[in-house]
Amino acid sequence: MISFQEGVSPSGAYTHDAVMIRTKSAATNQNDAGSIIIGLAEVGNERLRGLFEFDISTIPTIDLIDSVTLDLTTLGTAGINNVGGGGALTTFNIYTHAFDIDETTATWDVPGGGAPAGGTFGTFLTSASFDVEQTSQTHNFGDSAAFQTAVSNALAGDGILRLIIANNDESNLGTHDFARFVDNESAGTSAPKLSVTYSAVPEPSTTALIGLGGLALILRRRK
């Protein structure tokens, strides 16, 4: 398994992009906000989404992707949920994002790479549900076949995995239902962590090779 986490793994020099975009400040880059807030907020019927970009090119492209997960950790400052009340669970979804991400310039209006305002939800990959008012908790966005395929597709392309994360139900505008996550630049082992397990493509067995050789001989004799 290999993990991608800023300042930690695969090496202390590893960096990746992670930034929130928000409708309230649609033209303002939020990279210096100190956190990544995702969900809904009452003021201005606001939507907040997270954009993430991981360079995973160190994974051998000839190998099989066995599992993929993403860990996000909430801040010591709680999120707010006034949709379902105290203890209610909020679901957040991860999708592919087909456009380049630059955390230093991305805004809601101009996410970057030619993406439309707010970014674009690509293929649904996975989700996690939890109480956003619980602080300093690490939440695992679990493995799925779609997540594995997204990693394989990224490796077959430019080696960059691009993701967008949002509240599962953005129709509840005018409410507070958001989580505050630790960002990639300030938290070490609490920063976003992408983990990928992979294995080598098995070599053909000796028995299989002998069988193929025998079949070829039979075919030649029949000609």
Rank of each mutant, 00 (worst) to 15 (best):
I94Y: 01
N45D: 13
I101S: 12
T69S: 15
I56L: 06
N82D: 13
G86Q: 06
I56S: 01
L48E: 11
I56T: 06
N93M: 10
I65Y: 03
H97D: 07
T73C: 01
I65H: 00
L89Q: 13
S67C: 04
T28V: 05
D66E: 14
T69M: 06
S35H: 12
G50H: 01
T58N: 00
T69E: 08
N81F: 08
V68K: 10
A88P: 08
F54M: 04
I59M: 05
T73N: 12
F99E: 02
V83G: 07
I62S: 14
I65N: 07
G34S: 02
G86P: 13
L51N: 01
I38H: 03
A88K: 04
T69H: 09
L51F: 06
Y95D: 04
G79Q: 09
L64K: 12
F99W: 09
T69W: 01
G34Y: 01
D102I: 15
G44P: 01
N45M: 08
D63I: 11
S67M: 03
R47D: 03
L51W: 05
D71I: 14
L48N: 11
G86K: 11
F92Q: 07
A41S: 14
G44L: 07
T91D: 02
I36G: 01
L64T: 08
S67L: 09
F54N: 04
I94V: 15
I36C: 15
D55R: 14
L40A: 08
G39M: 12
T91S: 03
G86N: 12
A98D: 15
S67V: 03
N45H: 06
Q30H: 10
N93D: 14
T73E: 03
Y95I: 03
T91W: 00
G84N: 12
R47P: 06
L48C: 09
N82G: 05
Y95G: 02
V83I: 11
R47S: 09
G34A: 02
V43H: 08
G76F: 01
S57H: 03
T91L: 03
D55T: 04
I37Q: 06
D66T: 13
I94A: 00
V43D: 14
L64M: 13
A98R: 04
R49N: 07
F54I: 01
H97T: 07
A88R: 11
L64V: 10
G34K: 07
R47I: 13
G79R: 12
R47V: 06
T61S: 14
G85M: 15
I36E: 10
Q30W: 01
T90K: 05
R49T: 02
L48Q: 15
T96K: 00
I59S: 06
D63A: 05
D100Y: 06
E53C: 02
I94N: 05
S67Q: 05
G84V: 14
I56P: 00
F52D: 00
G86T: 14
F54V: 01
I37A: 13
G34W: 09
N81L: 03
L75I: 10
F99C: 07
T90R: 04
L72Q: 11
H97R: 13
A33C: 07
L48S: 13
N31Q: 10
L64A: 05
G79A: 08
I80V: 15
I80F: 14
I38A: 04
T91F: 02
G44K: 05
A78H: 12
G79S: 06
T77A: 09
